[in-house]
């Protein structure tokens, strides 16, 4: 069983910008222990001479011309904003808080 602790789960949740309840912490700790214990089977393989797969295909960087393309109107893109004002996304005050 992977030795992942509740404290580690709390740390990970913080990195992932999630609040977890005590019950969730408890549950996810147990889940991670089980899932990672299973996943650790990959350590049985010798991969010393193997390259990592970086992309799904062998394709390298693809370049295109830097051209301006009309994409969407401002109104279209703002239609899904949870809060907006004067054509901008509205968020709480960030400076001096």
């Amino acid at each position: 069983m992977a030795d992942i602790t509740k404290n580690e789960i709390m740390h990970i949740a913080k990195l992932a910008m999630l609040n977890l309840t005590d019950t969730e912490i408890e549950g996810y700790t147990k889940d991670m222990q089980e899932i990672l214990a299973y996943a650790e089977m990959i350590n049985n393989l010798d991969t010393s001479d193997i390259d990592e797969t970086i992309g799904a295909t062998k394709q390298k960087n693809k370049f295109r011309k830097d051209e301006v393309i009309e994409f969407q109107t401002r109104d279209n893109l703002l239609q899904n904003a949870p809060s907006q004002a004067e054509g901008m996304f509205r968020i709480p005050k960030v400076i001096n808080t």
Binding site: I4, I12, L18, A39, E52, T53
Partner: peptide, 29 residues
């Protein structure tokens, strides 16, 4: 949330090589 936690864990400092990088190599295999 479960998958975000698992994914964040395997990418986090100290575990990246053991899980993510290793899995990328097994993917090649």
């Amino acid at each position: 949330k479960r998958r975000i936690i698992l994914g964040t864990y395997v990418l986090s400092s100290g575990y990246y090589d053991a899980y993510y990088k290793k899995a990328q190599k097994v993917r090649t295999m």
